[in-house]
Design a protein around this nucleic acid. Structure first.
Lengths: 185, 185
DNA sequence: TAATTTACTTATTTACTAGTAGGTTTACAA
DNA sequence: TTGTAAACCTACTAGTAAATAAGTAAATTA
């Protein structure tokens, strides 16, 4: 199954958004590598905000499939997979999609903001449930309120993808391991 | 002592950088409110990168003064002041200067990157020392390696200033308190 | 007092930016 | 075979970006 142009635009847009930021890339940055014209991008996504919306939607879809695939695994492994996923983000010099959108929050149209909010809530809820299950099964150690713990895991990990751009690669691994140590019994 | 135009440009630039991102504001956004011409901004800062450099330097100066003023206080109070400082950032709809620079990292000139790196290392070291002192005095609880703890405090708190743009104000306070609870004996 | 420097302004350039109008090709359906 | 719609392209507009050149008024220095 060949990837459609529309799909390619979304993927490249996502890449640029998370590597450079929403206001730092242009339609030309998309059309050139794909060897199509600027107007072709506008054909699929009339405005840049429409593209942003599609990217947010795309992430919701991906996360949906991810969480379904993970549903059968136990909390500990789910958490590890989640953290490893962020590790790969960091290695590709990108940042997390949530923080990418957060940075450019005030340049996003309301419907894009709503989409991002829904995606974020999805992730937080998924993490909250994961932690609750981990606690119930005795795999995790109780620290605080589960949502707070979820928020701290999420913010720690995604801040790290940013912070290590400035400091060093080692610091990411350090934080990642510390999250695991903190939670695991 | 009246604030010089140069100083005003830096302050407004900092504000815009942290509210909208480096690539989302223009020289016009600075010249208009200050009621000067675009070229006047270029007089003080020939290129936008020069402005970015000055903003990074400015933060180093501020942090220097801050840490000197805090030197006599005890670790617990220093940490609280630090967290409250970030709370005020969050309330003003800005993000932390480190994450603002991190987001636009790849659009920064090498000398700006170096300046930001130095500032970040300053903050991490300050936090690391604070934690070490707190441990020595028995005010803090040992969790991990002190640098790791410092990294986690920093990343948790600054990710929160971004995350709460998307979720809710409450979530910031939640994270802030959890950091304190985790460390304090 | 003359020379110089600081802190600007006016006016302009070059290079993009997102976005659009209208024409063309291709594929598929009636 | 004709009609139609999807997926482009060519060519363009209007606006904005950073940056610069040249000039000026006021303050500072020699």
């Amino acid at each position: 199954m060949a990837t459609s142009t529309r799909e390619k635009i979304i993927q490249l847009g996502d890449d640029l958004l998370r590597r450079q930021g929403f206001n730092a890339f242009s339609y030309a940055d998309i059309s050139k590598p794909l060897q199509i014209k600027n107007a072709a991008v506008h054909y699929h996504f009339p405005s840049k905000q429409d593209l942003a919306f599609a990217i947010a939607q795309w992430h919701k879809d991906i996360f949906d499939r991810f969480s379904q695939k993970m549903a059968t695994k136990e909390p500990k492994d789910r958490l590890k997979t989640f953290l490893n996923f962020y590790h790969s983000i960091h290695l590709s010099e990108k940042v997390d999609i949530i923080s990418a959108f957060a940075t450019d929050w005030y340049s996003l149209r309301p419907n894009v903001q709503t989409e991002v909010q829904e995606f974020t809530e999805l992730v937080i809820e998924w993490l909250t449930e994961l932690i609750q299950e981990g606690l119930d099964l005795g795999q995790f150690r109780k620290i605080q309120n589960t949502r707070t713990t979820a928020l701290r895991v999420l913010s720690s990990i995604f801040a790290s993808t940013q912070l290590v751009r400035i400091t060093s690669d080692q610091d990411f691994t350090r934080v990642k391991n510390s999250i695991l140590e903190e939670l695991l019994n």
